[in-house]
Amino acid sequence: MTAVPLPYRVLDNRPETADTHTIVLRPVGTALPPFSPGQFAMVYAFGVGEIPVSVAGTHHGDLTHTIRGVGAVSRALCAARPGTRVGVRGPFGTGWDLEAAVGRDLLVVAGGLGLAPLRPLVRAAASQPRDHGRLNVLIGARTPGDLLYREEWQDWGRPYCQVTVDQPAPGWRGRVGVVTALLDQAAFAPHRTTAFVCGPEVMIRATARALLHRGVPARHIRVSLERNMHCATGHCGHCQLGPLLLCRDGPVVGYDRAEPLLAVREL
């Protein structure tokens, strides 16, 4: 179903950080078609409205979403108790396309909430280690308290995982600084690497530039972009970025396409 939401109920809701919750949704009746990592859903809070949310995990028809409460709808979803009914449409948009990276080194770079759409990708890659070369996961966040999924990192097992924060808190023993600084310690063969990058646009551009400088081909730098997705079906025109309708041609695009578009102001 792409225009009319299907009822789902909140199975679980746990706070992830001070303003961000991870909710698990289970279909009440029919489930939506399977979501691929990188795709997004439109989640409707009854009587409040609908927002695009990337899938942070899928499990037998259940959908996991990590949502930051910054607007009316996202706050309503963060506050939704188990049992609450919500409406869900999807799956929408392009995925990370892990299949196209078979045999290559994988470099996952996440900034802030950008780790949410990358989580199912990391889990999929970690569960099929033979399909890929080395797996690096580099995570940047504002403060240690803003780090997502900390209890899961060890389950991701194999990857080389590095974390840095902008503002350390007392007791923080990890690194401080921008996420691009972590690239120096990651082990990957640039020309045989596919990078997956998600976070604020400034962070995406800085990361992509650093990767290009190291020799990762632009088309193998996959970035997830955000615009104002409204209908998610390509009919409302809100999510245009130049030639792209991001709900249809994105949110995940190759940096070869994204770079010239991100360089134009107010495009």
Partner: peptide, 13 residues
Amino acid sequence: LDLYGPYGSGSAG
């Protein structure tokens, strides 16, 4: 720029 702040550039949803 406090990119990862709640109203920084790029916070989804």
